[in-house]
């Protein structure tokens, strides 16, 4: 090997002579900076809690408001000092329930089909459809609900029984909006089930359908549960569809054919006007937002906890 001849003497001057730890100011500064940036995300959560909590506290301290009224009453008429959250919660519950009733069966079916049956080519066509649905802004869904689904429903059910604004239309469209979320999370859960389970089922003479519904599906159930919970959280927090399609009357009702205002839609409508800062009405919005935040936070934490547990199960 003549190549090495050139290399006979190694220039050792390039070697560090001292192994002593250097003060690398740049490195430390960068690490500190990155930590601060990472910590900033905590600061966002803390700010949310403080901001919402602070204004909500002002609201509850107002002589016009009592906690009992807030949590028990079914009337929300700020003009006459009635602040019963149930008037808004009822609409949130109704629209979310409709959305979940639409999204869960459809989303789950879609997930099963995509993960257990669909050929490569079918997936290449079907998956983008769901991705496009997931990417459509909610305000567009709102347009669709008000100007397509509602007229359709009025045609089908009769315009004397269902109004221009109604919770049914908003809920249905919200279900379509959440469908891709449920489907993609469920698909993840299904594909996380080890193939050995499927093979075990096939080896015992199960058809693909029996394997997927009786072996794989139950094994993925907790992951699917997590998907449903995230779906609920999304439905509860959704604003634009309900703001556009379900009406602007805060009324305590669970009748999907009627118009009623959800918590989110109420916040959007009231704050959209020029509400003076510091009034009870203004502060009441923060109390509603705080409730929303806490409910969705709890749902998300539960869902994440389930997903983590679920992952551990198969690792």
């Amino acid at each position: 090997m003549q190549a090495a001849a050139k290399q006979e003497t190694v220039n050792t001057t390039f070697r560090p002579k001292i192994l002593k730890r250097k003060l690398r100011l740049g490195e430390s500064a960068i690490e500190a900076g990155l930590f601060i940036v990472g910590f900033l995300t905590i600061f966002v959560t803390v700010s949310i809690v403080i901001v919402l909590g602070d204004q909500a506290l002002l609201f509850f301290l107002d002589p016009e408001v009592t906690l009992a009224e807030f949590f028990m009453s079914t009337k929300w008429v700020p003009a006459i000092g009635e602040f019963g959250i149930w008037a808004l919660v009822s609409a949130t519950l109704t629209t979310s329930a409709i959305a979940i009733l639409v999204a869960v069966p459809l989303g789950l079916s879609a997930a099963i089909y995509l993960s257990e049956y669909a050929s490569h080519r079918a997936r290449a066509v079907l998956k983008p459809v769901l991705e496009i649905l997931a990417g459509i802004p909610t305000v567009v869904y709102g347009y669709f609900a008000l100007l397509f689904v509602t007229p359709l429903l009025r045609e089908l059910i009769g315009s004397e029984r269902i109004g221009v604004y109604n919770m049914l239309s908003a809920g249905l469209v919200m279900g379509i909006m959440i469908l891709p979320l449920i489907s993609s999370m469920s698909e993840d859960a299904l594909s996380a089930v080890p193939n050995s389970l499927r093979e075990a089922a096939y080896a015992m003479g199960a058809t693909p359908f029996e394997a997927s519904t009786q072996v794989v599906l139950p094994a993925a159930l907790s992951g699917i549960g997590a998907a449903v919970i995230v779906g609920i959280s999304r439905a509860v927090g959704e604003t634009m569809i309900v703001a556009i399609a379900s009406g602007a009357t805060s009324e305590f009702t669970f009748n999907p054919l009627k118009a009623a205002e959800t918590m989110t839609a109420h916040i959007a409508r009231i704050s959209g006007g020029d509400l003076p800062y510091g009034t009870v009405d203004y502060n009441s919005l923060f109390a509603i937002a705080l409730m929303l935040f806490l409910v969705t936070l709890a749902l998300n934490i539960v869902s994440q906890w389930i997903v983590t547990k679920f992952r551990e199960q198969y690792e």
């Binding site: 910590f39 949310i48 919402l52 995230v230 998300n300």
Partner: peptide, 27 residues
Amino acid sequence: VNRIIQTNINNLAGVPSIVYGMLGLAI
């Protein structure tokens, strides 16, 4: 600390957008 940061980021992703609006309004 780092586990809290990570969990927190995952949770922030699920906060309804309208709540961010309230945060923006106040801050």
